[in-house]
Amino acid sequence: MPMPACRSALLFLMILPLGACMSAPRAVDALPEDASPRTEAVAKLKDGLTGDPVVAAPAVPVVQFTGLGLSQVSKQPGASTNEKRLMAIRAARMEALRDLTEQIHGIRINSETVLRDQVLRSDSVRGLVEGEIRGARTLRITPKGSDSFEVVLALDPDTVAYILRAARQGG
């Protein structure tokens, strides 16, 4: 029978390898089986940013993040049709930027439901998207019919990683 000091050392040596094998949960391990390649890329990107800095992050397939924005020409302010078109393109671009921001930083949802005497009196839902986007590229600006424009913007995964690192460091 080993002595008490030896027993503690044996116990420590038996537990040490278990602790060394355990690591923080990874986003890729939580993915559903039917996850899209884009979802897998986001999970791998997250693991690369929050993982052990000593271990190299796995190679992330190049997946482009895209934001889509649509806007109607006739609803825009402006003295001429050309002015209204330019404003519609600008509005569609802002909507595409909001779409990218939501994908990268997420969306905060606030909701309130009011019941009086077990009768619904009001129900409101508010979404807030907040974040910073840098390096968005315009892929295309397409007229849709005679009264709308579609704008598609893109960000590369490396740019998304940069944005997330900057957000975590406070700017």
Rank of each mutant, 00 (worst) to 15 (best):
M1N: 15
P2D: 11
M3S: 15
P4S: 11
C6M: 14
L10V: 12
F12S: 15
L13H: 09
M14K: 01
L18R: 03
V28N: 04
L31H: 01
D34M: 00
R38I: 02
E40F: 00
V42A: 09
L45H: 05
D47I: 09
G48F: 02
G51I: 03
D52Y: 03
P53I: 04
V54R: 04
A56D: 02
A57S: 04
V62M: 08
V63A: 05
V63R: 04
L68N: 05
L68K: 03
V73R: 07
P77F: 02
A79C: 08
S80P: 14
N82S: 08
E83P: 10
E83R: 04
L86S: 14
A92L: 07
A92I: 08
R93M: 07
R93A: 10
A96E: 03
R98G: 14
L100C: 05
E102L: 09
E102K: 08
H105I: 12
G106E: 12
G106C: 10
I107P: 09
R108Q: 15
R108C: 11
N110F: 05
E112P: 06
T113D: 12
R121W: 01
R121S: 05
V125P: 09
R126D: 03
L128I: 08
E132L: 05
I133M: 06
G135W: 02
A136P: 14
I141H: 02
K144T: 14
D147H: 04
S148H: 03
F149I: 11
F149Y: 15
E150I: 10
L153Y: 05
A154L: 10
D156Q: 14
D156E: 15
D156M: 15
P157R: 05
D158Q: 13
V160K: 00
V160S: 11
I163L: 02
R165F: 01
Q169A: 09
G170C: 07
